[in-house]
Design a protein around this nucleic acid. Sequence first.
RNA 1: GCCCGCCUGGCGGAAUGGUAGACGCAGCGGACUUAAAAUCCGCAGUCCGAAGGGCGUGCCGGUUCGAGUCCGGCGGCGGGCACCA
Length: 868
Amino acid sequence: MSDLAAPDQASHYDFQASELHWQAEWARRGCFDVEDIPPEGKPTYYVLEMFPYPSGQLHMGHVRNYTLGDVVARYRRARGYAVLHPMGWDAFGLPAENAARERGVHPATWTFANIATMRETLQRLGFSLNWDREFATCEPRYYGHQQKLFLDMMAAGLAERRESWVNWDPVDETVLANEQVVDGRGWRSGAVVEKKQLSQWFLRITREAPALLDALDKLERWPERVRTMQARWIGRSEGARVRFPLTRPTAGIDELEVFTTRPDTLFGMSFLAVAPEHPLAAAAAATSEAAAEFVAVCRSLGTSEEAIETAEKRGFDTGLRVDHPFMPGISFPVWIANFVLMEYGTGAIFGCPCGDARDFEFARKYDLPIPLVVAPTDGLPPTDRAYDGPGTLISSGFLDGLDTDAGRTAAIARLEQVGAGHGVVNWRLRDWGVSRQRYWGCPIPVIHCAACGPIPVPDDQLPVVLPDDVSFDLPGNPLDHHPTWKHVACPRCASPAVRETDTFDTFVDSSWYFARFTAPNAATPTSRAAADRWLPVDQYVGGIEHAILHLLYARFFTRAMHHTGHLGLDEPFAGLFTQGMVGHESYRGADGTWLYPEQVERIASGATHRDTGLPVTVGRVEKMSKSRRNTVAPASIIERYGADTARWFVLSDSPPERDMEWTEAGVAGAARFGQRLYRLVAAVASSGDASAAPATGTGSGAADKLRRATHRTIAAVSEALDSFTFNVAVARLHELTSALSEASREAAAPDLAHARAEAARMLCLLSAPMMPHLAETMLALLEPNSALAAERAWPEPDPALLAARQVTIAVQIMGRLRGTIETAPDEAADRVLALAEAEPNVRRLLDGKLIVKRIHVPGRIVNFVVAG
RNA sequence: GCCCGCCUGGCGGAAUGGUAGACGCAGCGGACUUAAAAUCCGCAGUCCGAAGGGCGUGCCGGUUCGAGUCCGGCGGCGGGCACCA
């Protein structure tokens, strides 16, 4: 063994010891503590990252998410705000039940073990979180208040129980919200979703649809993309409801109502079609075996892969006919069609093949007439396809000659006049079904009594706590199988009754946690004084995957809590930032199996397997996922490189909103920079520069140059942090580091020593939001026994030092760069122009040319426009 | 099909309408070292060349003294939504 010298303090930063030390010190000093109600006059800032589901391990997406939030939190704190930056756990959900079924471990045990692991990693990353506010949604002290919120919503008419067609996941044996059905499959299980009729609890989000849509315009600090997605999801459309009388009433049905956005094309009608779930379809099925068979086929096909992929139009002619409100004496056939959705509009449409591609396809297939009623402004109506653009109405009775817009208005007016319909606004948004047949969720606080019906659990019996002793041996809901839990007395009549055994959709849990964080120990769901002080969240940070579900539900909940007095505002998140994903190359071995990055040796021509030396196929960069094994565990990175390196790397290079690639080389580069910065600052500290007196006057050239660079960096980093362009902040800090490095090679003079000390101190303060531990260590070297970086105010640049002493002005001829000149920033225009014209290369190229125009942008550019 | 976003060196990316390619990664050269690692310094869009010039931000066109940036059209990539009447 060679006798290696121990790394001395000046050459090597020991992140392991340092990071743990500062984390303890921040906690000891309560640097991040904040009161529920900060002192009067103290500005507040609430920064929140979407809280994690405790799946087991923190992943790199979390590291990026929480690092972004922590930069904001630390920066705002330095800016003088009281900062609320809490963390908790979205802890209910199916994976815990799956673990229980597969491994026999109780969901609570599994969940809290995962929380402990993930909390440790988060703490090791040095995030400035309010750990004293932590909670998990699976704790009664949280979900009990959620039950109270629900009961208040019931009382306010915002929650109700009703029979409805639901999306049933046959694998998870539970109901899914529309939002949780993706391509006809359960978002979690991937099973083909079936239609089933069940009695369910609904939150009446549709009552808020207009408000939720209108308010999107005011969410200026939300990404346009998310606002658009929500607007489309809410789906407002203007049109009309039109009633068509059946020529022969059947099964008590004497008319059919349709919704249309195109009442102007009513004269183009060819047929009427109802959804397979429509009451009329049921009536037809009751009397006709063929109809019954068709309805049954639709139900099984409704969401099957085949139906979705081929999207084939299928129909069944019921033999019934309807009269037309505008065309006396003419009737149209009534079909059952698989492309008509029961859950949109009225579950029935009037078919206008010339104006709607689906109706066109349907009419073609079943050989139905295709009357042409819209002539495009620039030609004849096409006969080979539907035309849904603007135009002039033809063959349309009283609408003839009107354009489509005017036709719409006229048609609605006539419908209302003859009592056959009326103009309406229709919404795509459906009420939110929140009942789930699961154990590991918040119990719905309702008791079913045979005599009294569904009765709210009285406040003094809250929380309704989940029983611990449950069995997962049977499929379905363990709460339902529990021998005693559900049997209670009716709160109203005291006769034997049964608890609701459904639990809430876990999206309920995450719809108000941000409010609970403002007063996590309040005896009521919220403390209005605290909530009013902190909300709305100033900066919310999370993934784009929650653009619709979580964010829309949280917006609704905030309104519902406003109605019920728990909050005093309508919109929970004033600013939203959606970060990009963290991706990594994926690797496949010769046998096609996925390989982990640590199994792979990257070489110039590709990659090989570390153990076998066999060639490895390098796949494209994709989001880190367990199935592709292209993951890197944050804990192992922290161990090898430290928290600051991980933080610095995820902030470098890629803008936060864009996807980034995790690379070993990138992490190593980040680690190198940390060490380099440390050595530089340590050298300044040991040189005694730190105690150098400030220079009087302008100082030497080198000192002046460094001071200007320092103050420009203060301004640039501040601006970058304000605008969420953290990658630019990183670049500016690299530049100042290089400037200090250059200045450190100069011969020492008192004024330069002071400039170096200033640059070193500013590097500490400016990098502190991003690499907080290193910043503390360096600052302690420069200024022992003084305030921590976490306790200091953000620096302000000296305006006098922001302007450059000399500026380089580009000289163009006809917009093409021909040379540069150096001038004072405030040099007179004619003097600048003269200098520019005298620049040798410029003078050569201007020789013999006539200058017709001289453009001078002070401090930037001169452009000569020449004749010819 | 509809909507949104993006397109700049080998790569990630920077750039209030004003010197395109900051900063980093990878690369190359040099210093230090017996050597290597680490570190430090430097070079680097591309083509021709001595100076200097030509061409360059997906493509075509426009506005402007000047366009990566603004406008019109086209193409490609990525994402979201989707029988929504």
